[in-house]
Amino acid sequence: MSVPKLNVADVAGLARLSLTPDETTKFSSQLSQILAHMETLGQIGTGDVPEVVPPAQPALRKDIPTPSLTVEAALSNAPAQSNDLILVPKIVE
């Protein structure tokens, strides 16, 4: 595996971050250094190793209702609300 080209601005876009040009430059060089270190994993043979599957155990929730928050508590942290709805800029598809 060779050090992949990391397009910091593209990836930041996926994560809904907008970076300043300074941040982009700085992160690009820092992250490629880090990725170069991570690349060393490529040298470890993992052909027969299954991915880690944590032990399964039957701890599932029974289908029995528990109390919800009050509307007031549910909305108490909302930055913008009206008529008990949480407001955001208009969603356009």
Binding site: R61, I64, P65, T66, V71, A74, D84, I86
Partner: peptide, 27 residues
């Protein structure tokens, strides 16, 4: 058709007052 939501105990029912069937998990 279940009594509660997929990952929390809030009721799974159509027609409640807005944001009255929510908890830290489903929020």
């Amino acid at each position: 058709r279940t009594q509660t939501k997929m990952f929390c105990g809030c009721i799974n029912q159509y027609g409640g007052a807005p944001n009255s069937q929510v908890c830290p998990v489903c929020l």
